[in-house]
Computed example of a mutant assay.
Amino acid sequence: MGWKGRAAVRPRAEPGRLLQETGDGLIGPRGRPPEAAVTWIELGRLGAPYGLKGWIHVESHTDPPQGLLEYREWVLRLASGERVRRRLVEGRAHAGRLIAQLEGVKDREEAAALTGAVVEVDRAALPPPGEREYYRADLVGFSVRNLEGAELGRVSHFVDTPSGAVMVTQAPGGGEHWVPAAPKHLRRVDLAARTILVDWPAELA
């Protein structure tokens, strides 16, 4: 999840949260996710209601944060797992955050019912990643091994920490490995084989 040669992860990544690898480069068609890739990409999350007329706070994962407002139709994944569509009526920055009003949400009670919902977009609607860049969701399920040949399991999810983004894998024998997702540690991504080569000792993962 580095960015254009930077080793550190940007505080906020592009829509869907891009990551970058270094080393031998991309194998497979650039910018095209494998068939098993996740369809939905998380762009943000709804927070607490704002005011009494149905407005709601929004945590944006796009860079800049206002980029989320460019998507006029939002798909909301509720706590139940159900997905519902809501058209963005209006949105703006407020006190360093975003607030938005969605179609059909008329008062504070209806806005509160959406608190915690994840804002998603169809993967196909996002711009293709640049050279040696990947959307995190496209790499979930990939097998990970290090330069010594140790198998670190399959990518489960990503975690943002104060020191940078971390790729979490489920180890073959159980448990987890946490691997920094900075470009200097991501040596190669093979989209066709669904594998990732990392420069990170197994004992530290």
Rank of each mutant, 00 (worst) to 15 (best):
G91Y: 00
G91S: 03
I41K: 13
W40Q: 00
P64N: 03
D122G: 03
G23K: 10
E133Q: 15
E133K: 12
E82L: 05
A117P: 02
E131Q: 12
A48M: 10
L68F: 00
P15C: 13
E110W: 08
A36T: 05
A100I: 07
Q101R: 14
A36H: 11
E35L: 12
D122H: 14
T22C: 07
L139H: 09
R30L: 01
S80T: 08
R86G: 07
A93Q: 14
P64L: 03
G130D: 03
G91I: 04
W40A: 00
H61D: 06
V118K: 14
G116R: 09
G44W: 02
V140G: 05
H61A: 07
W40F: 02
D63P: 00
R108S: 08
V84E: 03
G96W: 11
H57I: 01
D24E: 15
R145G: 09
E133M: 12
A124K: 14
P15Y: 15
R17L: 14
Y135V: 11
E70K: 11
E21F: 12
A117H: 04
V89T: 06
A37I: 01
E42W: 02
L147R: 06
A95R: 15
P33N: 05
E59T: 06
F142M: 01
L78V: 00
T62W: 06
R145M: 10
Q20D: 01
I41R: 15
W40E: 01
E120I: 08
E110M: 13
L114D: 07
A111Y: 10
E82K: 10
G96C: 04
S80K: 02
Y71T: 06
G23M: 05
A112L: 14
E148R: 13
R85S: 11
A79L: 08
L18R: 15
R32H: 10
V140Y: 13
W74S: 04
P65M: 08
V121K: 13
G116L: 07
H94N: 11
Q66M: 10
R92K: 14
G67N: 01
R32N: 06
A113G: 03
E73Y: 08
G51A: 05
R136N: 08
L18Y: 13
R85F: 11
A117E: 09
P33L: 10
E133H: 14
V89L: 13
E82M: 05
L98S: 01
E120D: 02
A124V: 11
A111S: 10
V118R: 15
L52Q: 13
E70Y: 05
E103P: 07
K53V: 04
L139C: 03
E35F: 12
L52M: 11
E42N: 01
I56Y: 08
R92G: 09
V89H: 12
